[in-house]
Computed example of a mutant assay.
Amino acid sequence: MAKPALDREARAGLSLIAPPFLYALVILALPLLTILAYSFLTDGYLEIIREFTLENYAFVATDPVVRTVMIRSLVVAAIVTAATVLTAFPVAYYISFYVRPERKALWLFLITIPFWTSYLIRVFLWKVILGYNGVVNTSLTGLGIIDEPLTFILYNVNSIVITLAHAYAPFAILPIFVALEKIDRSLLEAGRDLGESRLMTFWRVTLPLAMPGVVAAVLIVFIPTIGDYVTPEVIGGGRIPMIANMIQVQMLALDNRPLGSALAVTTMAIVAVISLVFLFLNRRFLRVRQ
């Protein structure tokens, strides 16, 4: 009698998850499979029938411009991720350990305020702040710190990093805060009772227990940052293209969808490998700490 009951529960579970699974398959998997299929086809701009080819991936692997843009994208994404997580952790730590419980919701509410406006508007605001006659230059000139407006704070990698770090800061703060909230405070008290300093207690207890939130923050920031298109275009002025800008040029401006698809697939593969390596190193770190 138990087996038919289990079969009914299994069928009920499958009927429950089938609609969202099919929806995710249609919305996510089919576009990715389409891009993957396009990446193995010839350009076909003047051809009616496209043919199977590996030339797109050969071009991606050997072209120096693609290599330069890809390396730049990875470096910028890594810098943004490091800057965002390193600045987000103290904020999350302060809210979790020093803010009174009845005020934590207010702090989290304030952190989400940037989400009230469009991402594009926030990027344009940073352009106004960092511009030649922007807030920074006007303030420094008014205080007499500089005689002429600075020209190196916009349309460069530094401005892109600042803008992206600000845009993705809430995405890093929230998962770290959740991980810190789950830490049993009695463990920290036990560490101090055993003679450990606050710094060593943080290193040996708090940080390892908070690592799941840190890992989530790193992945949440790194993955979309490397594919960001708006910020390099607006803040970089189109002078410092990243891989997303190159994909946009191939897909839309040049109408070379196979090559654009090959660039997209290669980028996704590189990001997947880096993410897996990071997760592996994090597990090794936690195993050593334990």
Rank of each mutant, 00 (worst) to 15 (best):
K3D: 15
K3P: 07
L6C: 13
D7Y: 12
R8F: 02
R11V: 05
A12W: 11
G13F: 11
S15T: 05
L16F: 14
A18L: 14
P19N: 04
P19K: 02
P20A: 07
A24Q: 10
L25A: 12
L28M: 12
A29F: 03
P31Y: 07
L33C: 06
T34W: 09
I35K: 02
Y38A: 08
S39K: 05
L41T: 05
L41S: 04
R50D: 00
T53H: 09
N56M: 11
F59G: 00
A61N: 03
V66I: 13
V66Q: 01
T68A: 11
M70A: 00
S73G: 03
V76N: 06
A77F: 10
A78T: 14
I79V: 15
V80D: 03
T81I: 07
A82I: 15
T84G: 07
T87R: 12
T87K: 13
F89T: 00
Y98I: 07
A105H: 05
L106N: 01
L106C: 02
W107G: 00
P114H: 11
F115Y: 15
S118T: 12
L120Q: 04
L120G: 06
R122V: 07
V123N: 01
V128P: 01
V128G: 01
I129R: 02
N133S: 07
N133P: 01
N137F: 06
L140D: 07
G142T: 06
G142Y: 09
D147L: 00
E148Y: 08
L150Q: 10
S159K: 10
S159Y: 10
I160A: 02
V161L: 05
I162N: 08
I162E: 01
H166F: 14
A167C: 09
A169C: 08
A169W: 12
P170D: 05
F171L: 13
A172G: 06
I176H: 02
F177G: 05
L180V: 12
S186V: 13
L188C: 07
E189H: 11
G191H: 00
G195F: 00
R198K: 14
L199I: 04
L199S: 00
L199V: 09
T201I: 03
F202N: 04
W203R: 13
W203D: 07
R204M: 04
R204W: 02
V205I: 15
V205R: 02
V205H: 05
T206C: 14
T206I: 15
M211T: 15
V214S: 11
V214C: 13
L219I: 15
I220K: 09
V221I: 11
F222R: 10
F222Y: 15
I223V: 15
I223P: 11
P224G: 04
T225Q: 11
I226Q: 09
D228L: 09
P232D: 02
E233R: 11
A244E: 05
V249K: 01
V249W: 03
V249C: 01
Q250N: 10
M251C: 03
A262K: 02
V265R: 03
T266E: 01
T266A: 06
T267L: 13
A269G: 04
I270H: 09
A272C: 03
S275M: 03
V277S: 05
V277E: 06
L281S: 07
R283S: 09
R284C: 04
F285H: 13
F285V: 12
R287F: 12
R289L: 15
Q290V: 09
Q290P: 00
